[in-house]
């Protein structure tokens, strides 16, 4: 038996093994991504008017669409408001849970619980917190002598409310990655630092934090992706309102496609979202150690 047919046989087996997954991925990831781009150059068809090629008309429409710019701005603020705080809290939680302390298991469980709960379910609970007058936040602020406030009805505070919920939901999830990194760290480092008389804060700043950098980059990428993906809470809390003050890009895409039934414009907006994700992917490729993916 020569080795040549054996090698080509392995080629065939390799492709056959991959085939089922490849077909589904092509159908529901690659084809729709390309089709979205193509669709964005056509008008929405209807029963009387078939869709036709309109070139960049949808994009011109988009640049003139104030709501588009608003949701993009909201999304940027949502990311800026959510990511640093949730990452900071995640590091704090991980350092705490990783050190010897009473009720360690209980504390870890509390931090992690929001991660396993559906966003839809927790949004129901938070909706009650934010309700004016009878809601928990207004009751507390009332008891302290402050007036009541329509947190979700005020364009100035609604995005903040969404951000607080997202931080609560995500910090415990990010904590897990830091916890894994901290546990992989050599305990000798800390012992050596203690012998040298270094304070814990100094040790954290000069040793722990730099060593956590790869984890931080990884978490950062995930956090940015999540800030464009996480819109479930809007369905319960605000429906994007008031006056789109809390709407995010993916939620707007959903509205345009399935409430206003404008598929072409929804595709055009999706192209923007895909472009943003592509930029994130490139950043990941450039900044993150390639090892993580290609080893």
């Amino acid at each position: 038996m020569s080795s040549v047919p054996k090698i080509s046989q392995r080629y065939v087996v390799g492709w056959l093994l991959l085939m089922p997954a490849a077909v589904l991925l092509a159908m529901f990831t690659h084809y729709p991504a390309v089709a979205t781009l193509a669709e964005s150059f056509f008008s929405s068809g209807s029963a009387i008017r078939p869709s036709e090629f309109v070139g960049l008309d949808n994009y011109r429409l988009m640049l003139d669409d104030e709501v588009f710019w608003k949701v993009l701005r909201n999304n940027a603020w949502f990311a800026v408001g959510t990511i640093p705080v949730s990452i900071g809290l995640a590091i704090l939680m991980a350092v705490w849970v990783n050190s010897r302390m009473p009720l360690q298991g209980f504390v870890r469980m509390c931090y992690f619980t929001p991660t396993v709960l559906p966003m839809i379910a927790v949004a129901n609970i938070w909706l009650f917190f934010y309700t004016p007058e009878i809601g928990l936040i207004d009751q507390i602020s009332g008891a302290l002598g402050f007036g009541s406030h329509n947190w979700l009805g005020d364009p100035d505070t609604v995005l903040g409310c969404i951000i607080v919920l997202a931080i609560w939901k995500e910090a415990g999830f990010f904590m897990i990655f830091y916890l894994a990194a901290l546990q992989a760290m050599s305990p000798e480092l800390e012992e050596a630092a203690q012998l040298e008389g270094a304070s814990r804060w100094y040790f954290f700043r000069r040793v722990t934090f730099p060593l956590l950098m790869p984890t931080t980059l990884f978490v950062l990428i995930n956090a940015v992706i999540n800030s464009f993906k996480l819109v479930d809470q809007l369905f319960i809390l605000t429906k994007g309102g008031p006056d789109n003050a809390s709407s995010l890009l993916l939620y707007y895409i959903y509205e345009v496609a399935f409430s206003f039934l404008d598929q072409s414009y929804a595709s055009t907006l999706t192209v923007v979202l895909l472009a943003i994700l592509a930029v994130i992917a490139i950043c990941q490729f450039v900044f993150l150690d390639k090892r993580i993916h290609y080893q």
């Binding site: 392995r10 990831t29 991504a33 993906k229 895409i253």
Partner: peptide
């Protein structure tokens, strides 16, 4: 199995880590 094209195929698979099905609701 190091079959020809496996590198590109793997990169195409990893694309789904970025473009999750949630993003493609309109076409899907």
């Amino acid at each position: 199995f190091e079959f020809p094209g496996s590198g590109i195929a793997f990169a195409l698979v990893l694309l789904q880590l970025m473009i999750m099905p949630e993003v493609l609701i309109v076409e899907n």
